[in-house]
Design a protein around this nucleic acid. Structure first.
Lengths: 192, 192, 192, 192
DNA sequence: CATGAATGAGAGTTCATTCAT
DNA sequence: CATGAATGAACTCTCATTCAT
């Protein structure tokens, strides 16, 4: 209606994408990606079907945006907490941050784990996710190497497997899963 | 194809269900349940679309059959290996059996984990899976109790989380995942 | 199994056709012709799907047989009761016979009226039904001519319309429809 | 096709529904409800298959709309013509109006009578039709009561049966049925 | 910038009919 | 004579995507 600066336009676009993305996040986690129609997302977001195509090229691109946007945040926790010289303190901090993050981002993780299990959908992200993941592997390996592990990369993958397993079980059965115990258990395991 | 003896009919039915089920297993694991059409399954199985409905009432029932049939096998490993009085030997045997089983049943596990992450699909199995799972929890708890763990149930869920996490990561990245190392690592962790 | 005379074979065939026809009659009247599958008819009749095709060439031929077989009976009532020289007594008898017949053959009439209303299905019978109907028109016209009606054919068609209307309303709302009153009313109307 | 004013949208919707409804009316009357596919209706209406589902939730809802919309008009004739104090003039007017209406709405009546004969389809309308019908019964009964009939309700149902029978026979055999004679006959019957 | 009517491909499912047994 | 497994066309309905307004 009124002229805006380019900055305003970009901000506006980012906000609209957020609104749509949030609606999609909720629905994808409840019904799955394939079972959620663009119509439902539009209704949930309070916009028209057509508008979604102004902000995203396709339903898949919407999913890509949703995943890649948040994946950076998720993998970023490791990077930020550990830094270049990981210590026991920073390692413990990282674990703590992840447990906090998971509880807030259950819906996202549900979609994420679901995607990991579908090669045909996973193709959309494979490169990006694997690149970021291996990046994190390396960073953590430094810590395990410092701690004297013979095969730091394998230990890294074992450690991440534990986290993934815990989060997956927590998502599936949030009410009964002993998340706090799992957290202290893994802390004891690695930090004595 | 009839009249035949009833025995022949039953055998034939079981065989056909197996053929269809195997085709579905392959495709579901590659594409996911929702993205796999009955047409594709029929083509893969080498039968007509309509025939699938002679053997299964619906696409969902086909999935249920596929899952529930194999889930018994999967959960059965724990029961069989551990028995009523679990020892270190039987516990080690169970872990070993699971690692073997997982390598053979990657496709199934992929579908299984995918289902766990989709509430709308999970509804089809929730009761059966949860009942069986809690059954296994109890059985394993006996072992951890014998070993002197303060909170055996939490330890059970922690232990299972580790297994789940390992298998999930293995499925996602079979070529590079250090499965053997993960196995010896978990054995060391619990059995000295 | 054992050799039979040709007569026995014919009788056997007629009996089987009757069994199948009766099952179809029940289902067609409840669900309509198009909505009743051959499978359902087979189950209701206690025979296999394939067997139905031994006795009838197609689902349509089964319907044709069902309709044409009973239509003769229905139109026959007029012929038999009226005879060549219709009197008040025979006319009254005919009305009485029709009211009796209708109560026994509600299911058939329901199908019959339904068919009359669907040109595409009606095509299967048009010739036969129309021929028989016009035959009856002529026969009744004799009675109305004898009674001095100026336009006996129109009166015939009017009279038959009344019967049809009564039966249709009776079928639709059997519990509440005053069938007995309708009968005495039409008798009074024509026989003083 | 939008944004438009709400008024435009409503008008557009009503027009589209009319186009689809008219196509369906034609085909249903020729082929019957069950034998007419959505594809055929779409082709006849000159729209895509999918669009029909923008305007009607299902094929059944389309039928409901088609029937209930016109049924009001049909039963309305009695109410409007008779008014609260039915006279011979208004009764004659009603009969005349019905005969006119029937000739214009042959296609509708064909569908309507067809539906009445199929319990499984009739279920969709039973309540509405029966309620409206009994409403008309009461209104007409007033006239017959005024005319001194002992059992006005039975006479009403008899009278309506005659009309139904005439219309049904007229629809089946429009070219030869003596509709005008039937009309004068029924007028003579009740109005001397 | 925003709408939702419109499309058309394809989904799951049913079913009349055939035919090896 | 009798069976029901097998087929394939057709059905109702859904949905990602487009585009006139």
């Amino acid at each position: 209606m009124s002229p805006r600066t380019e900055e305003q336009l970009i901000k506006h676009k980012a906000e609209k994408r957020k609104v749509i993305t949030q609606a999609a996040l909720k629905l994808f986690s409840e019904e799955g990606f394939q079972s959620t129609s663009i119509s439902k997302i539009a209704k949930e977001a309070g916009v028209s079907k057509g508008l979604i195509y102004t902000y995203f090229e396709s339903k898949e691109e919407l999913l890509r945006f949703l995943i890649l946007d948040t994946i950076d945040e998720m993998f970023g926790i490791a990077e930020v907490s550990l830094g270049i010289n990981p210590t026991d303190e920073s390692f413990e901090k990282m674990i703590s941050d992840y447990f906090d993050w998971v509880q807030i981002n259950r819906a996202f993780l549900q979609i994420y784990f679901g995607i990991l299990m579908q090669p045909s959908v996973m193709k959309l992200f494979e490169k990006e996710i694997m690149a970021k993941a291996y990046n994190v592997f390396e960073r953590m390996s430094v810590y395990f190497k410092n701690k004297g592990f013979e095969d730091p990369l394998s230990e890294t993958r074992f450690f991440i497997s534990i986290l993934d397993g815990i989060y997956m079980n927590y998502i599936m059965d949030s009410e009964n899963y002993p998340l706090a115990k799992a957290k202290s258990r893994i802390l004891t395991m690695y930090l004595k």
